[in-house]
Design a protein around this nucleic acid. Structure first.
Lengths: 291, 291
DNA sequence: CTGGAATCTTGCGTGAATGCACAATAGTTT
DNA sequence: AAACTATTGTGCATTCACGCAAGATTCCAG
């Protein structure tokens, strides 16, 4: 209680610094009367005289000099702060956090690593977990989402290509069971624990493959892929993973219907910052080279 | 340019600290609409988003966190300042300057020395010079003036007794010239350089002693007294000085008309401070013991 | 000593900032 | 699932702070 109006302190500071009400008023861009009222209010609330008034101007008392010194430091702090804050919008410094689902991290990590090298003052953080990190609370600047188009308010959504998958199996499985024809009865499949899974390729699976032929089921997408790579059967594997694993055999090429759309999501408050703009541009550029 | 409204920074600080507009509004004692408007104004003027808005509250961005840290320091500084400022009015610390004419310093010095011992945190300063120090510009807190009652505006004037003088001479002079009767023709007097001097005892001198009998004249009061003490003739010497000098002889006792009134003057802005009150009380107490 | 310049001071009218009320949204609890 | 609470967002009326201008005082110069 006492110094709750910081603007009045600022006014008193200018008066103490310049010595006259008129000078302070000009420096502050306000009227003399306002300056006088601010000082009067401050003094009466504090119960202390800050200035001695005379016809030549205002001379600060000891209390006024004390206030002036404190306010001087404050003014400098705020000035520096203003400079830094402008930078926050346009400079490439500080942290930059991207969140996504775990299964996409192998795709994103190379892009992020390259991006971090290009911007040394930027500390890039990748937040991947089972749970969905929300942008609203400032946990991340950018999110890469898969599946249905996000439509949360205050979020800006951009297309980021699609994640195409092929029906694959380990070459050991192929040598044992032969290629995949139109008859699925002789083959083992890998699928989701939940038969009603919403992913487009799993809807295709449920529609075209008898449930009895899905011999391995897992709730986690990564587990399903690893099962395929271990030779448990035929399942959907993202094309980028197929390229990196020579032991995998494409039993049926990727169909357009199986593609899972990817979305680049940013919070509207952060979307215009240079950092976010640079990263989203980089991600969209990289997405064009994805299979 | 940018952070000129300190109140808005204070508002944003509370929002960043408490996380919600409502909480900040309650802490600040204003309506939450005001808080929103302050933050909006600050952001639009800076061109930087300070907060991410969501239904749970406001989460500070990096810029907002930066502002919060700076404002936190400022808030603490101002809080400490407020404490100190209250002290300035009621505590006995810092400087305390008293100004007077040179001739009164021997009377005041003992009182000030005693006062300084009683208040160790107080640094007492005595400003005495030929020129008159004015209280208006903060050069001194208290002034002791002699002569006509000061009537400068914004100054508080209190009576401080009177300076009584007697007509004295050195005992050598008395042995040489004899005592002072009603005939002044046989005596030598010491008087002011300006015959029309306004001091009451000098008016008496001009009225009762022929100018030709004033054999020694000096413009400085101290010089006149020293001339008397040196045996140059009969002159006016303050009673306190007579008491301290056994060589002086009172040729004619002090008359009430000769007394020079003393005034205790303080600036209205500083009059109520504890320091000034203590000193003026001490001075008035000491004045009662003066001859 | 008299005019002039600069300053502070104060009453008055206007406008911008504030408070209020209601709406909308999301999270929480029953 | 539904009611409840706590939050933000916005249009409208009001008030308070601001700018303006005239007055008062002091200091300075000729």
């Amino acid at each position: 209680m006492g110094l709750e109006t910081w603007d009045e302190i600022r006014t008193a500071y200018q008066v103490a610094r310049l010595g006259t009400v008129s000078g302070a008023a000009e420096a502050l861009g306000v009227h003399h009367a306002t300056v006088i009222r601010h000082v009067d209010a401050l003094e009466s609330r504090l119960g202390v005289k800050l200035f001695q008034r005379h016809a030549r101007g205002y001379t600060p008392t000891e209390a006024g000099q004390d206030l002036m010194q404190v306010a001087q430091v404050t003014a400098e702090q705020f000035s520096q702060l203003a400079g830094r804050l402008r930078g926050h919008g346009s400079a490439m410094t500080g942290e930059l956090t991207l969140t996504t689902v775990e299964s996409l991290t192998p795709l994103l990590v190379p892009v992020l690593a390259e991006f971090e090298v290009e911007h040394p003052d930027l500390s890039v953080r990748l937040l991947a977990d089972q749970r969905l990190f929300r942008l609203e609370y400032g946990e991340a600047h950018v999110a890469v989402r898969a599946g249905a188009r996000p439509d949360e308010p205050d979020n800006i959504v951009q297309e980021l290509g699609a994640l195409r998958s092929a029906l694959c199996a380990h070459r050991r499985y192929v040598t044992a069971h032969g290629p995949l024809g139109d008859d699925f009865g002789a083959h083992d499949f890998v699928g989701p624990a939940d038969e009603r899974h919403r992913a487009p390729f799993y809807r295709w699976l449920a529609a075209h493959v008898p449930a009895s032929r899905v011999r391995f089921r897992a709730s986690d997408a990564r587990a399903c892929i690893e099962a395929v790579e271990a030779g448990a059967g035929i399942g959907f594997v993202p094309l980028w993973r197929v390229r990196n694993n020579p032991d995998l055999v494409e039993m049926r090429p990727a169909e357009a219907d199986w593609a899972v759309p990817l979305w680049l999501v940013t919070h509207v408050d952060l979307h215009r910052t240079a950092k976010v703009q640079a990263l989203t541009a980089r991600l969209k550029e990289a997405a064009r080279t994805w299979p």
